[in-house]
């Protein structure tokens, strides 16, 4: 059977959390390093407060832009329950970077359902989980919106992708006025000891 030689990264979260920008920086860096890269995301109705995901695949040669169940090497969850929602796409034993952050879905806020309390504990049973207070770190840096770049820094460390010039990738992908903050966010995420 043909086996995919590269890596598959799944980003997931809630619409508006910045998964798309993170994938933009990530792919810019991977392309600059000479990898073949494919990225896939879904637009439209899902953006309205819904669950969102972006897939990034890289290697010498990438055919499929998407993966199926059990095929992701790493999962980056911007929200705890979203990590579980997409967990079936992650290889058993794979790495899960989880932002220690909860966003209540409408059925929970309206009282029709309860937010699950055992998300991280259950994820730990099957995966190599790294829980990161990325949104807290982003807030302490001055803007929760750079949560995505904190997570990017943590991903680069977890994946040992230091050989790539990420500062250059950030420079190409974020507005100049937000570059300083995002650089801090990247460094903080990279430095975080989980």
């Amino acid at each position: 059977m043909a086996t995919f030689q590269g890596k598959s990264i799944l980003l997931c979260g809630v619409g508006g959390q910045g998964t798309i920008l993170m994938s933009k920086v990530l792919t810019a860096g991977l392309v600059s390093a000479g990898y073949d890269v494919k990225m896939s995301e879904v637009h439209g109705m899902a953006q309205r407060g819904g669950s969102v995901s972006t897939q990034v695949r890289y290697g010498e040669k990438v055919y499929s832009p998407i993966i199926g169940r059990g095929e992701a090497d790493v999962l980056v969850a911007f929200e705890k329950m979203e990590a579980v929602r997409y967990a079936e796409l992650l290889k058993p034993g794979g790495t899960a970077l989880i932002n220690d952050y909860e966003i209540m879905p409408l059925p929970v806020s309206s009282g029709a359902a309860e937010y699950p309390q055992n998300t991280v504990e259950q994820m730990r049973r099957a995966f190599d989980v790294r829980l990161i207070p990325a949104s807290e770190i982003a807030k302490s840096l001055g803007n929760i919106r750079c949560t995505n770049i904190v997570l990017l820094g943590a991903l680069i460390r977890a994946f040992s992708l230091e050989a790539i010039d990420w500062k250059d990738a950030l420079n190409k992908s974020v507005p100049q006025k937000a570059l300083a903050l995002n650089t801090l966010a990247f460094d903080a995420g990279y430095a975080f000891e989980g």
């Binding site: 407060g49 669950s51 979203e82 579980v84 967990a87 879905p105 309860e114 259950q122 099957a126 995966f127």
Partner: peptide, 12 residues
């Protein structure tokens, strides 16, 4: 992996 978590839908 099979996880025992009741995931709540996030409808648009």
């Amino acid at each position: 992996a099979q996880l025992d978590v009741k995931v709540v839908a996030r409808p648009p």
